[in-house]
Amino acid sequence: MKKQITFDRVTLGYDRKPILQDITFSVSKGDYLCIIGENGSGKSTLMKTLLGLIPELDGDITFSDGVKRTDIGYLPQQTPVQKDFPASVYEIVLSGFQNKCGLRPFYTKKEKENAIQNIIKMGISDLKDKCFRELSGGQQQRVLLARALCATDKILLLDEPVAGLDFNAMKDMYELIESLNKSGTTIIMISHDLSEVEKYASHILHIGKSVFFGTKREYLEHSEKKGGLI
């Protein structure tokens, strides 16, 4: 397995104030890494650091195997969209291709077709011309996932993708993510849902007071020794 992302003793935080120290882990192609930890333990901060939205305070983050930092598509924890934003589903999904445009002002025909493909893949083709802000939370998540797929099909970073979804929507979302993983996309997912994590993850990174990284099996053995999940 070729490593795509390596964190080597990385310290992360805001404004030079560290929140987490000495984080070491790596992700290889096809992995399904789940990041778990309590509220406020720094999961979203880790994600922002990985994406390059905030700088790491110490240590090295390396990208290899033909992967660049900008090859990561992501689904934010909270959609930062203002209440009144006028945008159709299609416009939003298409905007995922912006990173491939460079200075080119318009999207190509191929990109437009791919956007439609991704909309179909997410099962939201009937919503294509709907206004984003008038969709339900679960529908919005799918739209943003379709956008992320336009930006890349190598690595997807998902920050609590099922928060606020009902049981069925949640199940659908997990299955969708699993099918993407099966087709070769590396998944990095932040989650609180331990039973689902046990079901789907190949690797687990636990952050907080104690930091653990390993395969799912290692994690289960480790937590058994400690008596229950850490």
Partner: peptide, 16 residues
């Protein structure tokens, strides 16, 4: 198209 991407979600645009 760039203005749209920027207005809608600057972080996503930046990250990608």
């Amino acid at each position: 198209n760039k203005i749209f991407a920027l207005t809608f979600d600057e972080n996503f645009a930046k990250a990608t």
